[in-house]
Amino acid sequence: MTNDHFHIRLPDGGAFTCRPGESVLAAMQRYENAPIRYGCFGGGCGVCRMRVVSGTYHQLKRMSRAHVTVDCEREGIVLMCCITPLSDLTLAFSAC
């Protein structure tokens, strides 16, 4: 199945689209009400940390363990610059 974009839903009800293969953070950068700031785009600084509540994704880059521990990763905490969607995603802010 090919898909020319996925829908990414935000906790405030907003949504934006992300192209296959593109990082969620790169897509979010085009969205005017982005809820997080942009940092290194390298998985190192941790400012783009959110939780994926539903949907599947592929990890593009390694995420710094200083910001996403193994346990947190199991709970769906990811760095938005390090993942690309494989389906529509729902995102949330939640501690881990």
Binding site: G39, C40, F41, G42, G43, G44, C45, S64
Partner: peptide
């Protein structure tokens, strides 16, 4: 700027 591992 940031290098690929996120060090500025």
């Amino acid at each position: 700027f940031w290098e690929p591992s996120g060090n500025r």
